[in-house]
């Protein structure tokens, strides 16, 4: 078990609960898909897991330790182990930094004692980009390439866990499948938590799944089992709504 969420609730204002008593665990080497639509609280849950917000109640544990955003020493170690990939590759890369600066940021900020140049080069190669990309700027790349750069930034510090927020849903179909393939390969070395509304993508990448509806978990378990035999009506509706190719 890498990460566990224990009876976590969250609200921005007193009257509206965004997350309501959510519990889940992330097992080592089992990718977890968090599935939900807008208003399900899935992005909020991800922000809590990233230590960007604190739960109103409940605890998140990393290994044995409770996630405490005010403990700087702990957060440093946590950030090193847990990295993120965001949905929109156009807004997740600083337009004024070159690719080297973008990918090297975790190494610099977390004082990771490895040769930065070599580490960035290796990260670029493992996401399928040429090493000389590091001297260029984000606007010179396509959406799919940008997402590869964002993934390179997430893996450069060799984290145990990658949290991805709709990491492929802004991409075109043919690009999407290639990025999913890339994530699948990376998933062999680290664990992936994928927040998505796209069941097809989640099914391609995740062994476990959690279905969120309006801040509550309505169903969770092994992906295959849930897709083949959904128990909750909302899960069934989600599965039926997924666009499929005509036979």
């Amino acid at each position: 078990m890498i990460l566990s969420v224990d009876h976590v609730s969250f609200s921005y204002t007193r009257d509206r609960q965004v997350l309501d008593d959510v519990s889940l665990t992330v097992q080592r080497d089992r990718n977890l898909g968090i599935v939900g639509e807008s208003g399900s609280g899935k992005t909020t849950l991800l922000r809590l897991l990233l230590g960007l917000n604190r739960p109103t109640s409940g605890t998140i544990r990393f290994g044995e330790q409770a996630l405490d955003t005010s403990d700087r020493g702990f957060m440093r170690a946590y950030r090193r182990s847990v990295q993120a990939v965001f949905q929109d590759p156009y807004s997740s890369l600083d337009p004024r930094q070159n690719v080297f600066g973008i990918i090297a940021e975790p190494l610099q900020s977390l004082d990771i004692a490895v040769p930065h140049r070599e580490a960035v080069e290796a990260a670029l190669v493992s996401v399928g980009l040429p090493p000389d990309a590091m001297n260029r700027y984000p606007h010179e790349f396509s959406g799919g390439q940008r997402q590869r750069i964002a993934i390179a930034r997430a893996i450069v510090a060799r984290p145990e866990l990658i949290l991805a927020d709709e990491a492929v849903s802004a991409l075109d179909l043919s690009t999407r499948i290639r990025i999913v393939e890339l994530l699948k390969t990376l998933g062999l070395k680290m664990t992936l938590v994928l927040v998505s509304h796209d069941l097809g993508v989640v099914a391609s990448l995740c062994q476990d799944i959690v279905i969120l509806e309006r801040g509550r978990i309505v169903e969770s378990g092994k992906t295959r089992q849930i897709l083949d035999n959904p128990q909750h009506p909302y899960t069934r509706k989600l599965i039926d709504s997924a666009p499929r190719m005509p036979a």
Binding site: L173, L199, S204, D240
Partner: peptide, 20 residues
């Protein structure tokens, strides 16, 4: 060939999803 990639990609996601 491009159409082929598109169709294969879509079918791959369908397959992961499984037929209901």
């Amino acid at each position: 060939p491009y159409t082929k990639t598109l169709v294969e990609a879509a079918r791959a996601f369908d397959q992961a999803l499984g037929r209901t």
